[in-house]
Design a protein around this nucleic acid. Sequence first.
DNA 1: CCCGGATGTAAGCAGCTGCTTACAACGGTA
DNA 2: TACCGTTGTAAGCAGCTGCTTACATCCGGG
Lengths: 199, 199
Amino acid sequence: MEPGSVPPSEERRRDASATRRRLLEAARDLFAERGYEGATVRSIAARAGVNQALLFRYFGSKRGLLTEVVALGGLEQVRSTPPEELFETALRSMLTRSAEGTEDRSLEVYLRSVGRGDEAAGTLRDLGEEYQSALAGLSGAPDGALRADLAMAWLLGIGLMRTVVAREPLAGAEPDEVCRLVLGTLGHLWAAEPGDGEV
Amino acid sequence: MEPGSVPPSEERRRDASATRRRLLEAARDLFAERGYEGATVRSIAARAGVNQALLFRYFGSKRGLLTEVVALGGLEQVRSTPPEELFETALRSMLTRSAEGTEDRSLEVYLRSVGRGDEAAGTLRDLGEEYQSALAGLSGAPDGALRADLAMAWLLGIGLMRTVVAREPLAGAEPDEVCRLVLGTLGHLWAAEPGDGEV
DNA sequence: CCCGGATGTAAGCAGCTGCTTACAACGGTA
DNA sequence: TACCGTTGTAAGCAGCTGCTTACATCCGGG
């Protein structure tokens, strides 16, 4: 055995980067399932199979963990999706119970964590800004930003009713059917004239 | 002074019903501002100017307090409003920063408290059921319940973006303008044909 | 008057929270 | 081999939570 660097393919018993990654994945899932405040540092460390002191060694604080989760989850996603596909993409990812894979769960984290004026709100606000600015150009109307907010509100509301409240028939409805209803209706929102309209 | 019953108009130093009422009002406001978990029994008792032990004497538990708040706030309201006015009424009450009066804040309580799978969810679910069944008849389509859920999702989402996330321009937009956009768009949701549509 | 229930008060309980500290074990380097 | 920074571990800290208990104080009916 050469005294050179360790072969990267071999699994090491002490591996800081692997520990960091396991903490990030456990935090992403638990934040999505229970919200920021509901996911305790002990539960995150336990799901990662890691001593909780390491969480603070690698991320400084619970808030620091959230920041990294959101940064490499949602922010990258929204920046790499063309605006005209963004809404449908986000809606479909909200409608399909993600298969526990290495997917983006930042919207679930968002809607389960913004409920209170706690420290998570500031970190998550940036994620919302990205969505809004991407959506704002879709309507030619001068109040495009307001309409983008309304569209995002619907998106979050649907996620709230489906994954949190879980009430039928929305929770069990076919994603395609919900998409058809929502996208068809939203078309009228983008097209509605700003000045005057019906009631 | 006759030895008869105490004149009800006179303020008594020890008044159980007044204490109960003050606790209920303080709880309603704090639940609406911070959510169920965020509002501590100590903060509720302090705002009511009451010893916190009395909270447990009169309501048994924090959850019992929430149940009474929701019951005499939201449930009465939705039952006494005609269905065709319910959505606009709820939307407007969500859009106007209620003037600290003795108003109904149950929707704020709802959206700030359903974020997690905690004990509050069960109590609040009944409130959602009332709204859904009232709204379900508005569309003649066979999937009226699904459309009612989608409308409620938009309502809650708008409240979420406006009172919790507080992002512009939605947070500062004129209630009338938001109402016009939302109600105009929702008209197309009620009217959309169920079978096949665009996209 | 005086007793007893109703009302209000102060203190404390066990359990949980985010976070820190002191220390052990590993493993590459000299 | 001897060393020393990196990685992992166990225990504990102060503060908060919902809730309970033991005890004052009021006040109307006998």
